[in-house]
Design a protein around this nucleic acid. Sequence first.
DNA 1: AGTGAGATGGCCT
DNA 2: GGCCATCTCACTA
Length: 192
Amino acid sequence: MILPQEFYFNDTTSVAKSLLGKVLHIQTTGQEFRARIVETEAYLGVIDPACHTFGNKKTPRTKSMYMDGGHSYVYMIYGMYFCLNFVTRTSEHPEAVLIRGLEPLPSDPDIKKKNIKTNGPGKLCKHYHITKALDGVCLWKKKSPLFVSDDNFKVSAKNIIARPRIGVDYAGEAAAWPLRFYIADNVYVSKK
DNA sequence: AGTGAGATGGCCT
DNA sequence: GGCCATCTCACTA
């Protein structure tokens, strides 16, 4: 079943954890790819120095973060890569979950290719052709190029690891907040 | 295994 | 002009 928009209205940390094990459907090139979400990070909006909307900052780039929960936020990083986020809560609370690791499912047309690389936010966007064109799309409609479903795959709480986020050392104390979540022992997690 | 630099461009002040 | 929510490759050892 497709996750309803309300799923994304919950607090961002809970959404980041709940997304582990869910299935992301990507329809960018005509064919449908499916992959299980195995690593996420929470970005807590106006109070989070690591978040693009820290201090309620509004810029052209972060426009979709000010949409209601259940939309995508895609931005370019380092001039070369894109990062995929799911916007959470409401437009008054511009928060999001970064998708950092995906495990391709057997239905993935590319599953037989060797060295498929979907561990890491830049790599997974490159592999699935996720670009700025997919910024601000809704995530709860079957016709959307991106949507998320629950196939009843269970992740037990003890298999959810919480660690500090990656690449946010500039954010002071917030760099140590344990807002990165991943499934224990999964090969498609970006770092150990 | 661990460190460091380069690629590369939009965004922000 | 400087900074990135990254990744790969080359280098040390």
